[in-house]
Design a protein around this nucleic acid. Structure first.
Length: 306
DNA sequence: CTTTCCCGTCGTCACCTAAT
DNA sequence: ATTAGGTGACGACGGGAAAG
C-alpha cells in the first residue's frame, strides 16, 4: 500500500549506497565506530563470499540506541530532573545529553543519503551511481478512479487524466501540480493545483486533481484497494480552497498532513530498524570471524609450543 | 464453522523540537 | 509566540493461525 501511495508523489527516494570492500582487520574498526555512532550500514555477501559494507560510517557521537519505551521514560525523567535541585550541573547536563531525544529517522537517513551523494560525486565525478541496492528511478504511477478514469502521475509531478475504455492511456489532459514542500523527493505533503480560472487549490498529498474534458476540476482521494496492493482506488472529494479560514477545513488539512506524516514516520522507522538489523548482522559476522581467528591462532600456538 | 488470540497497519491525539 | 513537522502512545480494524 505504502509503495503505491508514495508513487502518488511521483517519486520515491531511496538512499544510494557506497560499496566499500573491507578486510577482516578493518572490521573491528568499523564495528567500533558503528557501536558509537548512529551509522546505518548494510552488509552484502558477494558471490565470492566476501562481505561488502554499504553506507556511511558517521563520526562517533553520544547517541544511544534506545527502545521507544525508553524514550517515553526519558521525557518523564527530564521533567522531574528540572524540579530537583541537582548537585552538579555537569552531571545534569550529561544526563540530559544521554536522555536527549534521538534524532528523527528522517534526519538520520537524510544525513546519510546527503553524505552518500557527496561521496559518490567525489568518487568519479559522474552522476550518482547506484550501489547494490541502487537508487530507485521515479516511474510513472497509474491510478484508477472510482469512475473508471485513469490518472497517471509522471516523474516530473504532472498529473494526467485518461478517459476510461481507452487502450492504454490516451487523450491525456495535464494538470500541473507544484509542490509546496521543496524539491525533496518523497516528502511532498501538500500540493497546489491550478484551476482553469487561475485559482490555486490546496491539495493534500493523498489526493490528486484531475481536469475533465470540459475544464472542470475534480480532486480524488487516493486509496489502495484492499484486495490488491497494485490497484489504487480514487474517490472524488470536495475541492479544498487554499488557505481556508474554516476551522473544520483547517482540521481536515492538519489531519491529512499528520496522517501522511505518520505514514512516512513509520516507513522511516522500518528503514531504521532494518539498518539496525543489518548492524546486528555485521557485528555477528565480525564476532564469528574473530572467534575463528582466535581459534586458528590458538591452534597455531599449541602446535608451535607443543 | 465459530471463536479466540496474535500481529500488523492505520488514524488520531498529544507532546516535543526546530524553524520562522 | 506561533507554526509545522516528527514521533510515541493508544485504540480500532482486519487477516491469519490455532483451538474448540
Amino acid at each position: 500500500m505504502e509503495e503505491v501511495q508514495q508513487g502518488s508523489n511521483g517519486t520515491e527516494s531511496q538512499a544510494a549506497t557506497i560499496p566499500t570492500t573491507i578486510t577482516t582487520s578493518q572490521f573491528s574498526q568499523i564495528a567500533q565506530q558503528m557501536s558509537l555512532g548512529g551509522s546505518a550500514l548494510t552488509v552484502v555477501q558477494l558471490p565470492g563470499g566476501q562481505l561488502q559494507v554499504q553506507g556511511v560510517i558517521q563520526s562517533a557521537q553520544s547517541s544511544v540506541i534506545q527502545s521507544p519505551q525508553g524514550q517515553s521514560a526519558q521525557a518523564q525523567s527530564t521533567d522531574s530532573e528540572d524540579s530537583q535541585d541537582s548537585d552538579s550541573g555537569a552531571t545534569a547536563q550529561k544526563t540530559r545529553e544521554i536522555l536527549a531525544r534521538r534524532p528523527s529517522y528522517r534526519k538520520i537517513l537524510n544525513e546519510l543519503s546527503s553524505e552518500e551523494v557527496i561521496h559518490i560525486e567525489g568518487k568519479d565525478g559522474s552522476p550518482a551511481s547506484t550501489g547494490a541496492t541502487g537508487v530507485t528511478v521515479p516511474t510513472t504511477s497509474i491510478y484508477q478512479t472510482s469512475s473508471g478514469q485513469y490518472i497517471t502521475i509522471t516523474p516530473n509531478g504532472t498529473i494526467q487524466l485518461a478517459t476510461s475504455g481507452s487502450e492504454g492511456l490516451q487523450g491525456l489532459q495535464a494538470v500541473t501540480m507544484a509542490s509546496s514542500g521543496g524539491a525533496q523527493p518523497g516528502t511532498t505533503i501538500l500540493q497546489y493545483a491550478q484551476t482553469p480560472d487561475g485559482q490555486q487549490i490546496l491539495v493534500p498529498s493523498n489526493q490528486v486533481v484531475v481536469q475533465g474534458a470540459g475544464g472542470e476540476v475534480q480532486t480524488y482521494q487516493i486509496r489502495t484497494a484492499p484486495t490488491s496492493q497494485a490497484v489504487v482506488m480514487a474517490s472524488p472529494v470536495g475541492l479544498s480552497q487554499g488557505k481556508s479560514d474554516d476551522p473544520t477545513m483547517k482540521r481536515e488539512i492538519r489531519l491529512a498532513k499528520n496522517r501522511e506524516a505518520a505514514r512516512e514516520c513509520r516507513r522511516k522507522k522500518k528503514e531504521y530498524v532494518k539498518c539496525l538489523e543489518n548492524r546486528v548482522a555485521v557485528l555477528e559476522n565480525q564476532n564469528k570471524t574473530l572467534i575463528e581467528e582466535l581459534k586458528t591462532l590458538k591452534d597455531l600456538y599449541c602446535v608451535k609450543t607443543g
